[in-house]
Each structure stands twice: as structure tokens, then as C-alpha cells.
Design a protein around this nucleic acid. Structure first.
Lengths: 347, 347
DNA sequence: ATGAAAGCGCTAACAT
DNA sequence: ATGTTAGCGCTTTCAT
């Protein structure tokens, strides 16, 4: 017998329960799985014995026998340096959504942060496990496709390859909403702080800004912030140096917007009187800034919970799509009718 | 044969690789596990065949055979209403630390948010799985003990029962450092915003504040903020209404401090000139506030990574303890030598 | 309604 | 160095 496996002894197995209850293992299995084919009297006896022995079924053995692991994989591509999963409040909301959908289902959640160098091999290994499915929180279209080719039970929370099932939001429309709002409250020099070019969401928001600003006949004023606070801070400072006339900023994520607000006030300008700011996400960062941040709210928990349920329901189908709204949440950094916009002399 | 298991067919097994390579399954096992007892020529042949067939070992079968699941469990007690794991940036740091320690080890991470009603049953089930061990991110001493009695491979990141292995920080000393700093920069009406009474960390920080404030001969001024932004905001507003003379606040977590800063500035007071603020954690919230938050930095990633490695090394031993420093990080909300404290007339 | 038996895919003694 | 064999704990036919 295997030594390691023997070490696990002491824990009662289904056979221990069976013999103690004077029935077969098959019957115990039927009872603990609430399956048909066991008389009420035996059911109660088996349950009593199981409880007395402190029997806990082995999910591993069960998984091997059924060919199915009751696990959802959440996968995020993590560039080792920035440590996204910890450094970005977005994932907290994803996690919350998944956990709420999983509650009471007996399904477990595994988290995988893929570093670029190991990503392909990791995807192959993950797709081989017969899990409930994979939730791609921030995976490139290429890797998403790679997973999909090996296992269909997968769904992406970001824009991805056509074949791969995904939940989508109208990033372009959302940015238009944000920029239009800034325009409506009288701003005419609306800059943008963009996310990383490699990120598909960031790319869409960048395009959205360009479309909106062009349609309004306003000048395009953009800088890159890399989806992190420091990037947002530096981008805002740079923008204000180069273009002191800026009176509003659209920032592609709240974390960058927090940095931007700090940079703006550090130059002596006021938010929103001198520079109005609209962020994106409605993450924790949005309620920590001062003033609180107006932002485009992504229904992240809802999306994550839906994605989880869709996976539990089976293969979503080739190219599955579901769309979600993005709503403008007005707080003080860009209010509906706040303090009048103060015209200021060029510095 | 089991139907579900048969459905998993198509995926090549170790026996498929063995017969295709003209060797036994045992040999294939030795090769893929880098175990001794296989000639170089056979190794390369087996590897080639495995790659050609797209063979991926089943972690489930492996786990059953070895009696060991290569999984770390991270457990957090989650009151369904507040959704802590998503709503508190602290867990992002924990996650980042665990993931970094896990990288390249082939060990997986599972996340469990226990709701109070199911917690005991869930703990029993989790402790029965022969995993690498459990990381208790925010689990009460009672539940921690329950787990420990069933499985020794467990470690807590918060103060817990004496028997249960744990990593600890000197919460009391840290609060003393914070309060002393506020005193040193001239503040004499130092209020506190506390965390939930049920939380062991919060309890220690509460005690720390009382000790420090008593030793300094200053009046105790406290309110409860529940470890969330809104609570911090409301507590600060209430404190300022009842005690307009307050010139500093020690806030037991950064998220509450973010709310507190918003409440303070909303009353027309300035941070730090009128009211200095020191938070706790150095989470994402600390760098999103305006002005940026001075705070007591917990080495969370380090602790989480160490805890993970300790579990991978085996049973930490009865009552295992390791201590970590908490450092004062000075930012603008309570600078070392910032703008002079402005005395102001009672309102 | 119940039990016997045959695996699920892998590992690890034990032979050779 | 390599193969044979016997499980790990459970589920699921197939008999009875």
C-alpha cells in the first residue's frame, strides 16, 4: 500500500461507515448523495453512524470516480512585477461576485495568477483538469483561445477572441457618456489618462475617448497611466504641465484617477472647480478619494456571479455573449450641478 | 465503467503514453515526476510521446494515489452582508503574498469565504481534505481551534487561540507609535475610530489606543467605524460634532481613514493642518486618499508568503508563533514636520 | 431496496 | 533500470 496514502488513515472511509452500519458501501454512497434506492430506516442509521464516526467524504476520490472536480478556476494574467491581483481593487469585486454565486453550491474556487513566461503551460494543465470551468478575469485573447481549444467550459470577463464565451460591456459607449457629461457641465479641454496598450479594456476605452472627443470637435489630450495609482498621478501632472488649460479629465480606471486627483490638487488646482474628474470601474478607490470620485460603474459582482452560474450550467456555447450596462455614478469630482466651473487665467 | 468518468475519455492517460512509448505506466510515472530509475534514452522517448499525445497528468488521480492534494486553503470568515473579501483591500495584499510564494511550486490556492451559519460544517469538511494546509486570514479563535483539532497544518494571520500556529504583529505597540507621533507633532486631542468589537485585531488596537492615551494623560475620544469607509466617515463626523476640539485621529484601518478624511474636509477643516490622521494597514486605500495617508504599515504580503511557505514545510508545531514589525509610514495626512498645527477657535 | 464488482488515473512497493 | 501488482476512496453499473 502507498505510504503517503496510508498516512491518511485514521480518517474513516465510506467502507468504515458501511461496515459499522451493517450495509454496503454502495448504500452509504446513495445516502450521502441523496440518491434514490435506500429505505428511510437505513438512511437514518447510516447518517447516524457517519456522524458518530465523523466521516467526511473525500472530494478527491469522488472527483476521480465521477470524472468531475467541483471547482471553478479563476485565471488572471499577472505580470510578476506589478502583482495585479493584489494591487488592483477590481479583482476584489470579481472575487466577491464569484463567492456569492458559489455559496451553498459545494463548488470551490481556485485562483491562478499566470506569469507571462509560464502562462501557456499553465493554461494547458488547467484545461486538462475536469473542473466546472474557468473564469478568465484578465486573460489575453490568445491564451483564452488556447484554453477554449482544450476545454469549452470557459468564459471571459474582458473582450476576447470571437469563439470564446464572454460577458461584455460597452466600453466605447461608456466613455462617450463620461466625456459627454464633462462637456455638458461646461468643460472644453477634456484630457484622458489611458490604461496599458496591451489590455483589451484599456484599448476600447482609449478608442472611445478618441471617438467622443473628435465628435465634439475638441482637442485630443492623452497620456498613459498603466492602470496604477502612480501612473495616474504622473500622467495627470504631466498633462497639466503641458496643457495648463485642461479643465477635465477622463481617467480609464479609478485607481489612476485617485492618483490624478492628488496630482491636480498638489498643483494648487481644485477638483472639481478647476478640473473635473471622471474615473472608471467604481472600485474601492472611487470612494477613498477626496473629493469622492464620479465614475463609470461596471457591474462587476453581477458579471462575475453570472459567469460563475453560466459555467455551472455547462458549456455556454461557441461565441456566447451577454451584455451589461455601464452607469455613470455622480459624486463630487464631477457633479451634475456642482460649483460653477471657474474660468482661470493661463498660468 | 462510470459514465461520467468515461466522458472524460479522449484525454490520454498515463497508460496511453506507456503503450505508445512501449514502456510500463510506472516508467512513465517516474519520468514525469523526475524520479530516479529511468534511462536517459527512455526519458526522452517518453517525454516526446507525452508531448505528441498532449498528455496532461490528472492532479485528481495523483492526489488520490499520494493521499495529498497540492492545495493551500485560504479561509476568511465573511459576513454575507458586508462581503469582506471584496470590500476590504487588505485581502488583496494577502492574496498577492500567497500567490508569490506559490509561484512555481505547482501548488494551487483555494479561497473560502465562510458565512457564520455554515462555518462549522465547512471547517470540518475542509480539515478533512488532505491539503497542504489552511491559511486563516480572518477566522475566530473558536473556528481556528476547531480546524486545528482536525488538522494541524494550519496557520492564522490574526490573533488566535494559543494552540493554533499564528503570525503576529504588535498591534498594541503599533498604536502607541501612531498616537505618540501625533502627540509629538503637537496634537493634544487625539480621537480614535475603532474596528468591530468581534475582530481580534480591532480589539487589540482599541486596547492600544486606550493604553497610549492614558499614559499621555489625554482624554479618550472614541467611536466605532466597523472597518468600512462609511463607518469611518460617519464616526469622524460624529466625533467632530461632539468634540470640535479634536486635532488628530487614529483610525484602526485605512479604509475607515479614507472616509474620515472626507468627513473632516467636508466640515471645512483641513488635513493635516486642523486634524492630522493616521491609519492602519497601508492598504490601497492609503494611497488613494487626499492628502495621502500616514499609516501603520503591516507587512501583509511578507506574512502571507511566509505563512504559505511554513505550511508547505509541514506542521508548524503546537502554538507556533512568529512576529512581524509594524512601521509608521509618513505621508501628508500626518507628516513629520509638515505645516504647523493651526490652533483654531472652538466652533 | 440492497450488494458485489469493476473501475476512475495515478503512485509506490516489490520483483526481476 | 524496468515491469507487475495492488491499491488510494469513491461511484455506478449490474445482479439479486
Amino acid at each position: 500500500m502507498n505510504q503517503a496514502a496510508r498516512a491518511q488513515r485514521g480518517k474513516p472511509t465510506i467502507r468504515d461507515v458501511a461496515s459499522a452500519a451493517g450495509v454496503s458501501a454502495a448504500t452509504v454512497s446513495r445516502v450521502i448523495n441523496h440518491a434514490a434506492g435506500a429505505s428511510p430506516s437505513i438512511r437514518t442509521r447510516v447518517r447516524a453512524v457517519a456522524a458518530e464516526l465523523g466521516y467526511q467524504p473525500s472530494s478527491t476520490a469522488r472527483a476521480l470516480a465521477t470524472g468531475r472536480t467541483r471547482t471553478i478556476e479563476m485565471i488572471v494574467t499577472d505580470s510578476c512585477t506589478s502583482g495585479w491581483i493584489g494591487a488592483h481593487p477590481h479583482y476584489g469585486r470579481v472575487l466577491a461576485g464569484v463567492m456569492s454565486a458559489l455559496e451553498g453550491t459545494g463548488t470551490q474556487l481556485r485562483i491562478h495568477a499566470l506569469t507571462p513566461d509560464r502562462a501557456a503551460a499553465a493554461i494547458d494543465a488547467l484545461a486538462a483538469d475536469a473542473t466546472v470551468g474557468a473564469l478568465l478575469a484578465n486573460v489575453t485573447p490568445e491564451l483564452a483561445t488556447r484554453y477554449y481549444l482544450r476545454c469549452r467550459r470557459v468564459i471571459s470577463l474582458v473582450p476576447t477572441a470571437p469563439a470564446v464565451p464572454a460577458l461584455e460591456v460597452d466600453n466605447l459607449g461608456a466613455v462617450r457618456t463620461a466625456v459627454s457629461h464633462l462637456h455638458r457641465i461646461g468643460r472644453r479641454r477634456i484630457a484622458a489618462i489611458h490604461g496599458p496598450v496591451t489590455n483589451s479594456c484599456a484599448a476600447q476605452r482609449r478608442d472611445g475617448y478618441r471617438n467622443a472627443i473628435t465628435d465634439l470637435g475638441l482637442p485630443e489630450l492623452g497620456a498613459d497611466g498603466g492602470f496604477c495609482r502612480d501612473g495616474g498621478h504622473d500622467a495627470a501632472r504631466e498633462l497639466l504641465e503641458r496643457h495648463p488649460e485642461i479643465d477635465a479629465m477622463f481617467v480609464a480606471c479609478d485607481l489612476m484617477a485617485a492618483g490624478a486627483i492628488q496630482a491636480i490638487t498638489a498643483t494648487g488646482l481644485r477638483v472639481p472647480e478647476d478640473v473635473a474628474v471622471i474615473g472608471f470601474d467604481d472600485s474601492l478607490a472611487a470612494i477613498c478619494t477626496n473629493p469622492p470620485l464620479s465614475t463609470m460603474r461596471l457591474p462587476v459582482e453581477q458579471m462575475a456571479a453570472d459567469a460563475t452560474r453560466i459555467l455551472m450550467d455547462g458549456d455556454p456555447g461557441f461565441g456566447f455573449r451577454r451584455f451589461y450596462p455601464v452607469d455613470l455614478v455622480l459624486r463630487e469630482s464631477a457633479p451634475e450641478r456642482g460649483p460653477a466651473h471657474t474660468l482661470r487665467a493661463p498660468r
